[in-house]
Design a protein around this nucleic acid. Structure first.
Lengths: 235, 235
DNA sequence: TAGTGGTCTAGACCACGCC
DNA sequence: GCGTGGTCTAGACCACTAG
């Protein structure tokens, strides 16, 4: 029943990373350091570090140590992708509506659990642009059940997920998506500055988080005329 | 330089699974069995089994053993999805063109390596139907570099990937995708029995395999009117 | 050469599933 | 009660990185 030792070590280290006590490119204490610090054997220290590596917080380097890395955003989730990452440096985000309480919304293919429905729903909308061209309209919903005082109107570095990690110590641990090609309706066409009835991607996503009962529900409408949506996965 | 012991054990076990010597739902030898069989300690046996589990070949069950599982096809790759898996039982596949040698094709966003280009290209096309409705047109290409005598015209259980695994002991270990929404051209519209200019999903995929230099390149055209394309991922 | 992570041995105790 | 996998100890040797 009690948490295994290596889980405690892992939780400690992860929290220190989330708080910024170890920053990207810095090295964590070595396995032997951890053995001394926690009075454990290398097997236990290694187990903690190996799992942190599997979770994407660190990279292990033979002969050097365990380096903290910027947690890759693409955990099997979809990313906008242009030629040679031009997108990454040139993305602007417009807030269409700030995070605020709304009635729970039913129009989502993923079932929202009773637990989630029992607390109010926070919603926000954004428009992602490359240069001056809008390419993605994004809507997000999540329950306040695990995160009762979400009063942020601005995000750390503009990133909702980074805010969840650094302020609330909540991580994305999985996702589930449904993708369709549809015709843009007039409102979407106007937002994305395209012709009505143009083909666009319609994507529903459920992001699972490290809080068992907290999911982030998103709906994306993408103009893929110039930029496609990409996805990578490795065993 | 030499392969670690646990890798050898792992390779042996995986091969036995691929050959069908251990079938889905059967249990592998226990950790202690492996210790005796290979003259190793439990640490080494565990390492082999844990990695096989991570690779998706087995499930570990406390108090019971390591059960062989049908390797989930959804390794971060896209799957057709209808309401409540109605699709799974009702999918028919039409072969539009059998596997045969063709000149290498350049019209793919993923760069084909020099190594791959140095050997001839095999191509085949299929049409996936749910009931009598065609929903996906699939084109595939791969190099004969690692698989010089691919003469199969039919696949085991109709599955290309199952054939790769069981006959050639090659597994899918990752994938990379690009997704767009486009208008169906007349040829595609005819194949999928939809109106020309209907919005359809256009997906390019590179499947990475356990053979370092072998990739499977696919192009999918999907009518998502009634069925969407889905995707799941867990850490 | 000193320190790091990677592999491996030989034990121990525990929690879980099943008969 | 017995066998299974899960956790943990206390060592050893090796391969890699860097000063």
């Amino acid at each position: 029943m009690a948490k295994p030792l290596y889980e405690l070590i892992k939780d400690n280290l992860r929290l220190q990373i989330q708080k910024g006590e170890y920053k990207p490119d810095e090295y964590l204490p070595s396995e032997n350091d951890l053995c001394r610090e926690y009075n454990i054997t290398r097997t236990t220290a290694r187990k903690a570090l190996e799992e942190l590596s599997k979770e994407g917080f660190i990279e292990r380097h033979h002969g050097k140590g365990s380096k903290v890395v910027e947690r890759r955003a693409s955990l099997g989730l979809l990313n906008l992708k242009g030629f040679s990452d031009v997108v990454g440096n040139n993305v602007k985000t417009l807030i269409l509506s700030e995070p605020s309480l709304v009635p729970w919304f039913e129009n989502h293919p993923f079932r929202v659990s009773e637990k989630e429905l029992s607390s109010p729903c926070i919603h926000f909308e954004r428009l992602r642009c490359v240069g001056d061209s809008p390419v993605m309209h994004e809507k997000n919903w999540f329950s306040t059940i695990e995160i009762s005082e979400f009063y942020d109107k601005e995000f750390i570095d503009g990133s909702f997920f980074k805010t969840l990690s650094q302020k609330y110590h909540i991580e994305i641990v999985g996702s589930e998506q449904e993708i369709k090609a549809v015709r843009a309706n007039s409102k979407t066409a106007e937002l994305l500055q395209i012709e009505p009835d143009s083909p666009i991607l319609h994507i529903f996503i459920r992001f699972m988080t490290s809080k068992k009962h907290l999911n982030i529900y998103s709906e994306l409408l993408c103009n893929t005329e110039n930029y496609s949506v990409g996805n990578k996965y490795f065993v």
